[in-house]
Design a protein around this nucleic acid. Structure first.
Lengths: 205, 205, 205, 205
DNA sequence: GATGAATGAGGCTTCATTCAT
DNA sequence: AATGAATGAAGCCTCATTCAT
């Protein structure tokens, strides 16, 4: 699944299956207790196998966290790419992408929370890797925005706006104790999108 | 300093001094290693006293984290309040407040990072307390925005915009690996402020 | 190969082959890492088959050690017996035997090292068995000495001298870090033999 | 006590006391189970304190082994030096030293056994250190022999003979299952000494 | 009030052994 | 007969917390 984690098992299909079990279980667990409070035994149990088997597929507890982070990004990215119409330059395309992104962030808020809070528990090198994935994600938003409003925004503004949108999506889950008390997802999406449009419209004048 | 931490010591002045040492040392330490990786021995050492003494002033390791979180918020709040002109309703007042806020977030980025990442390491009750402080901070921004643009924005929009600004300030430090690679602080402040204004201006039309 | 190890396999030829593979591989491995640090997986790999197969031929990890110890002794004994002229009583026969013994100890120093250091890792009963083999080896030397100098030495002296020679042979490999720094094998053999002769000669006076 | 082991405790006298307890307890324990089979918990218990305290004075389990090896050598050396008359060149002085050495080896046979069998469990660097101590011990014997028979033996012969005596002393304990079945300590000492003298006498002719 | 030695629960990880295929 | 995935007991070590001085 990922070259960074060397498992002693040889059967590729099995490895994939096990790592998938592991990642699924770990997300549920980390959601409740966070990475640090979760013990390796609990991780194994959540994945549905024994502690011994766990260590057939990972080398260190941290590897599980990395697995989760990696999987989250991959899923977000895949889902975004399925939804984005790369050829369209219409405003509608932007709306569609932004709404889809917020929707995904809503569905994956637990995963995103983990990613946010535990990143620094990873070794430096793996942190870098995860950050790179974040850059790619922001890059996707940049492209969408830039496709829709290429004429009105300079590159730097696009970067900033994309980053803002990206963060706003994450904050929906991350600051749910505040935001979800005040807004429904519909409202949040709609309002943020209106604000976004007003920025773009204004720059265009 | 805070009623939640009961120290067996009585001399108020000394307690204050010690807790201050503690908080200062802890921030430096958590900055480097994070809360979980820092041991109580290291915390004591960073504070300049022994492990035994540490436990004269706290009851659990978590108390130190709480202390730090609390202190960070207090400092941000104090500095913001010193800068804000509560009576002014001019656009200039908004600009001043936003710039000041970003400036503070820049200076305290390490502290804010800690606060962000370690919040869930606190017990539920203390989490609530810290969240409450966050709400207050957002509230301050709300008031400033609302004072300047009361006529053009409904309450809910103000809430959202204030929250966005608040998060953008934190992200300057939190996502420094991305943002600070692309923008200087000046640029970031200026551009975010322009975007903010365009939102407000647009709503006003 | 040895009745102490019951393998579930029946084909005698195959068992022999496998146990031989196993013993050869294990010596190489133990040489590097010692018995305790070598894992059963590594042992299986060194033998050229899987962990599952390993356990078709042994029951416990210790069995491998026993196998090695046993094989070492057998080889030393066989080689000694090939070289010794049981009928000769001349001094030359002694010289020949002693030199041959030292030569063998030189060639098998790694194996002897293992035997020396890991003996107590065996269960008591197997220890006894190995010790018995040691006694036999010393016995061979006793006979050679006694054949050559029967008239001058009482039985007890022969026992002691034989034991000394036996140990000196082992020490060539076991204390190589000291002895092999100071002497070449030729020198060591020659000098030890001279000392041996002087003992015998003196007793004869 | 030894710079190689860094204990977190500051009080020098206490450290010395604890390390002494530790070493004493460990010898008893290793005697029974060997180093590998002894758990850190058992080591702590044998030393009379908790596992936590154990790790206030050592960093790794291996350190305990090193401590033991070191202490054994130190004790042997000290006792030898107390007994040796450095000025005497008489044959009597040699006899005295050799007998004393065998006596010590008899009394410390368990310790010596440990040293012999577990040396390779130490990290390379520590092995070197222990070997150096062995060299010193052999050196002491060399000096005694050379003092008594300086005129008859060349340096290389002295080295060899000293090494032989040294090993013979250790073997009394190490091969007790063989030697102590056949000889009393008195006999062993006496006979080995006679052999030694015959070597020296013969060279002198 | 301050100190730091002592404690032991509990975490991570390894690895001998088994067993279904 | 051979394989290698699965198991879980058990080992090493850390570190938050206590308490006697």
């Amino acid at each position: 699944m990922d070259h960074r984690i060397t498992s002693s098992t040889k059967d590729e299909a099995l490895v994939k299956k096990r790592l998938n079990q592991l990642q699924k279980g770990a997300v549920q667990l980390f959601k409740q207790k966070g990475f640090h409070r979760a013990t390796t035994r609990e991780i194994a149990k959540a994945a549905g196998f024994s502690i011994g088997t766990l260590y057939e597929y990972i080398r260190k507890k941290e590897d599980v966290l990395f697995l989760v982070c990696d999987a989250v990004h991959d899923e977000v990215k895949t889902r975004m790419e399925n939804v984005i119409d790369r050829n369209s330059t219409s405003e509608e395309a932007l709306r569609q992408a932004v709404f889809a992104y917020f929707q995904i962030m809503d569905e994956m808020q637990d995963e995103v929370l983990i990613l946010y809070q535990e990143l620094k528990a990873l070794p430096k090198e793996e942190q870098e890797y995860v950050m790179q994935k974040e850059r790619e994600m922001v890059g996707i938003l940049e492209r969408v925005i830039s496709n829709s409003y290429a004429n009105v925004l300079d590159e730097k503004n696009v970067k900033l706006v994309a980053n803002n949108v990206y963060v706003q999506g994450q904050m929906w889950g991350f600051r749910r104790w505040l935001i979800q008390k005040e807004f429904t997802l519909q409202e949040y999406m709609e309002m943020q999108y209106q604000l976004l449009k007003s920025q773009l419209a204004f720059q265009a004048t």
